[in-house]
Design a protein around this nucleic acid. Structure first.
Lengths: 247, 247
DNA sequence: CCAAAGGATTGGTCTTGACCAAGAGGGGGG
DNA sequence: CCCCCCTCTTGGTCAAGACCAATCCTTTGG
């Protein structure tokens, strides 16, 4: 009766709260500033802490907030523009933006990767792990799967694992003449080991970039790169002009 | 004392639960099959419903599950491989995979887009909305922002809004000789209007692809494409061989 | 025979309250 | 003066229960 007809589709509280907080972040807070703690915020907005947390989780997913246990919730800086193209294997690595460490073992690749390898799912592969740093922060961790057949020059040699062997595999790969690649991006949640590398909790949202490199007609390597979705915007190369035609 | 030393870092219940469910999905369920309802699952595993839901949300984020209110939770099919490159504007649209409808208005672009336009943030732009369908399902919705200056041929003409005008803008754009593009992918959460187009709830995780098209040295158009993160794997072109050099 | 009404089912939202674990910071002992 | 330990703060996890909203399906009435 007296109520205006605004509530045709009632908005969830956490959704409205997210909007309010988002506006407040734009107008009343600066990057790095710390917000009041969750209990106080919940009280201030007159909602349960669980509801408030639902709003905060949304904002964290969008990269607006950063939360750390024992510390507090801070306003996140804009996402890094992280260049991922045309293929990390060919990327020299600019200063303040480079791949670090490259451990290597003989772990079997996951089924989804094994299916891409030309040598069959049981062929031996090198598994090289490396981590990408930007502005002093880890933004990605990658598993590179290289069939032994792709780098025959070092098979059997350098039997020790670790970063020395990993770098050797990468060196051999760079000698190959890569003919092309296939690439896919999808959303995932960080496994426990990836989360540790990325300084996040298990299950944190990540962008998974799967790159398949071709050489001499076969799959020379498969890279599965896991980027922090909260801090990264993936960009694709510095736009060498591409031929586009009219429809 | 008597406890074995397994619990160095106790695993959250929802995380363990997610693993158990994930394994069960692989071995005991088929795509499309419906799971027991949340209350029963929670009882079966001896956890609170909130905890069970936390595990289900993770699995949904990973595209393993699909949940619909009033219906139930079903096992999701593998993600679609959706081709997004080298640029939707140049994509003819295969059968069963096409852009539909193209409504057009004069809405002002968001600040992040306005900043990319060469004509300044206040220049008039066409805002074309279209939706991409795959296998009968909506997988993406896009807002295309085209400065009036980019399509002078139709300024003032076809003053009516709607899909006719939208298609006219697209037609004019195809006549341009595009010189290149910049592209970025990031994680976002669906706004209310996007969620409606994608048949999802507001806040659903989406992959936002921002493409900037260049023509004659200026930004001819900016496309913001919003893909359902639960059902899509973004792929980039059918791999025209790329020149890669050795390090 | 079809359409409207109504109830049962299911996931979505919200509350209250409790405890746990990671950091930060202060105070005391070496 | 430095380092260790304790405590406090903060976000993370978990429980139990209530109600809401979308959907499906049966029943009822035309």
């Amino acid at each position: 009766m007296g109520t205006t007809q605004v509530d045709a589709v009632p908005e969830p509280k956490y959704w409205h709260l997210k909007t309010v907080l988002s506006d407040a972040l734009d107008s009343e807070f600066t990057v790095g500033e710390i917000l009041p703690n969750e209990r106080e915020l919940a009280a201030r907005f007159g909602v349960a802490r669980a509801t408030l947390r639902q709003a905060l989780e949304q904002l964290e997913l969008e990269g607006r907030l950063q939360r750390r246990r024992g510390v507090g919730t801070t306003v996140a800086p804009p996402r890094f523009g992280v260049d991922v193209g045309p293929g990390e294997l060919s990327w020299p690595g600019a200063p303040d933006d480079a791949w670090q460490t490259a451990d290597c073992e003989e772990a079997a690749p996951p089924a989804s990767v094994a299916a891409m390898l030309s040598e069959g799912p049981d062929a031996p592969v090198h598994s090289v792990r490396r981590t990408r740093m930007t502005h002093g922060q880890p933004v990605a961790t990658e598993m590179l799967y290289v069939p032994h057949a792709s780098v025959p020059g070092m098979s059997g040699i350098e039997s020790a694992g670790g970063s020395a062997r990993g770098r050797a595999v990468l060196r051999e790969l760079h000698r190959l003449e890569l003919e092309g690649q296939e690439r896919a991006v999808e959303l995932g949640s960080a496994r426990a080991d990836d989360a540790r590398q990325l300084d996040r909790l298990p299950g944190a949202p990540v962008l998974v970039v799967t790159t398949r490199y071709f050489a001499q007609g076969v799959t020379a390597a498969v890279a599965v790169s896991t980027y922090r979705a909260d801090t990264c915007r993936l960009t694709f190369g510095d736009t060498a002009p591409v031929a586009l035609m009219a429809g």
